[in-house]
Write a protein that binds this DNA or RNA. Structure first.
Length: 554
RNA sequence: GCGCCCGUAGCUCAGUUGGAUAGAGCGCAGCGCUCCGGACGCUGAGGCCGAAGGUUCAAAUCCUUUCGGGCGCACCA
């Protein structure tokens, strides 16, 4: 809002310079406004003079001075100064900040959400873990990133659908069936070897136990039995996954089955379409996709020489299907170990005639669980993974979600279980939630003194009484929410919200320690309550986006 | 061997997409309520941004090389 005013001021100054002949008319200007790191450099600054310098063959400092002379900034700015080697620093009047706060208060917190989505349809696909075992902590990280990202995109005006892709057509489900079958025979008292290529986890035994407990009738023929068990086990595991996700607060709009693509014939149809476009060829009895003619990658097999289609084949069909369902942007969230798959996918997107940037892949780096300062193993194959459920039971939903968002997704994450469990100041989740509860507590006390925060709107509140440096700082922090949301949405980086919150809340705690909110001066008290009201709403709104609760008491 | 990601304070990590004197939390050394929730705040020490070149008015950020860590390189999914 205020940022926009600064852009206008710069534009006007440039136009005025053009009229005076100081700037050539044909020059086009895209002022970049940033928030300086140092407070003493003002609230906003622009580096525009640096860009003009080579074109005008003048030094940037001189240009900065000329621009400032031609600025009509008095309404918004306390002062505008040339600085450094050619920066222009803008110092916003305190009353402008206060008025902006009042404006947001009057319009409601929604006024802080940027409108950049324009209703464009986004399909965000995440988790998509094969139903061959319970979700582990790595899936949990992807789940939160996807969930929170979709919250962010919705808030900025996108239409978002969250989808889970179930790979139920591949060999892994078959393997799960075999694994269950062998465990089942063991339970029947047979001495059968358990091959190492089967799933080793305890949960496979549980599946077999379930079959016996429920007295399920198993086909005599071993092949049929395996097939039956594959389906049974897959469905059962999938139900467990769904429950874990719900417990984690991650709700999907759609579960999309790979097998459905085959049943509808979409896979064959897509291969046929690629064949017509001459994007495929036969070699060694297999059908190959010309990946190399689109991206820097090798050609890949779509149909194996035994006639079976590869995962890649159905994946092309899947993405085609997503586009045909009317989505403008597709977001895929994968474990970072799949990064080698990106060129292939991008190539296939091009072959569908789509812009490769219409698909965005977010990679989730590994999570290391720490207990007593030592890493905990989590290999699925070895059967000693730490499941998402275990972590949830241990630290709770709020801490788990928050911790997953404390790193950008493409960076390794060390998840300290002991820290997440602590109900103390060391735990960042509590630091944030405590601020929310603390503000609420002030409101409770205010009510006892006869001021009900809910009827604050009936009062004449004079925000010009908010003159403390800390108060202006908090106002700026509240308004900054807008920029953070925009940046987070554009870069698809949900962790920015977490860092913003920690920073914002720190400002509050500091203010709280120095300043009494409730006092004898009723007008001042009302003004401060309004400030805290808006602060609390931003905190609550941010926590809501993160899917973390905002307690009124702790 | 080829490709991708990461190397920033003792530890865990940010760094506004190329900006000014590099930040936070934890840890460490101190300090602070007769007062709205001490689950808090304040002060201090701590750095050649892995290394070397290059591009630029300006580099932690971009390019090249190099070292260290992780992950990929299937007619698996």
């Amino acid at each position: 809002m205020i940022r926009k005013r600064i852009v206008e001021i710069i534009d006007e100054a440039c136009n005025s310079c053009k009229e005076k002949g100081v700037l050539p008319h044909e020059i086009s200007i895209y002022p970049i406004i940033e928030i300086p790191r140092e407070e003493e450099f003002g609230d906003y600054s622009t580096n525009i003079a640096f860009f003009l310098a080579p074109k005008l063959k003048k030094n940037p400092q001189e240009i900065a001075k000329i621009l400032i002379q031609n600025m009509r900034s008095g309404e918004v700015c306390e002062k505008v100064e040339p600085a450094g080697k050619g920066f222009i620093n803008f110092y916003i009047r305190d009353e402008i900040w206060r008025n902006a706060l009042k404006e947001v208060y009057d319009k409601g917190i929604a006024a802080l959400f940027p409108h950049i989505g324009n209703g464009k349809k986004v399909l965000i696909e995440f988790v998509s873990a094969n139903p061959t075992g319970p979700l582990h902590i790595g899936h949990g990280r992807g789940a939160v990133v996807g969930d929170v990202l979709s919250n962010i995109l919705k808030k900025v005006g996108h239409e978002v659908v969250k989808e889970y892709y179930i790979n139920d057509a591949g060999k892994q489900i078959q393997t799960l069936g075999e694994s269950t079958y062998i465990r089942w025979r063991e339970l029947k008292g047979e001495k059968v070897p358990y091959p190492g290529n089967l799933y080793q986890g305890e949960y496979v035994k549980d599946l077999a136990v379930l079959l016996i407990e429920r007295n399920v009738s198993i086909p005599e023929d071993s092949e049929k039995a395996i097939k039956f068990m594959a389906r049974f086990a897959g469905d059962t595991v999938m139900k467990g996954i769904m429950k874990d996700l719900v417990d984690f607060g991650v709700l999907f709009d759609s579960f999309y089955r790979e097998s459905g693509l085959y049943e509808k014939g979409v896979v064959d149809d897509t291969i046929e379409m690629l064949r017509k476009k001459d994007y495929v060829y036969e070699k060694d009895g297999a059908l190959w996709f010309r990946t190399s003619s689109f991206e820097n990658d090798e050609d890949r097999v779509l149909v194996k020489s035994d006639g079976e289609k590869t995962y890649f084949a159905s994946d092309i069909a899947y993405h085609r299907d997503k586009f045909e369902r009317g989505f403008h942007t597709l977001i895929d969230i994968w474990g970072s170990d799949h990064h080698g798959y990106i060129p292939r996918l991008k190539a296939s997107i091009k072959s569908l005639g789509k812009d490769k940037d219409s698909v965005k892949v977010i990679l989730i780096q590994f999570v290391t669980l720490l207990k007593d300062g030592k890493p905990v193993g989590m290999s699925t194959r070895a059967g000693q993974f730490t499941t998402l459920k275990e972590v949830l039971d241990e630290v709770g939903k709020d801490a788990a979600r928050f911790f997953f968002l404390m790193r950008k997704s493409d960076a390794h994450l060390e998840f300290d279980l002991d820290l997440a469990k602590k109900t103390s100041n060391e735990n960042p989740v509590y630091y944030v939630q405590y601020a929310h509860a603390r503000i609420e507590s002030i409101f409770r006390n205010a009510k006892e003194e006869g001021i009900d925060i809910r009827s604050l709107r009936d009062e004449e509140v004079d925000v010009s009484l908010l003159t403390l440096k800390e108060e202006i700082t908090i106002i700026k922090g509240i308004l900054h929410f807008h920029d953070v949301m925009e940046g987070s949405a554009r870069s698809l980086e949900p962790h920015r919200i977490t860092f913003y919150l920690l920073d914002l809340v720190g400002k509050f705690h500091s203010y709280y320690n120095k300043t009494r909110v409730l006092g004898n001066d009723k007008q001042l008290t009302l003004a401060r309550l309004l400030l805290l009201k808006m602060l609390q709403e931003v905190i609550r709104s941010s926590l809501e986006i993160l899917g973390v609760s905002a307690p009124e008491k702790m």
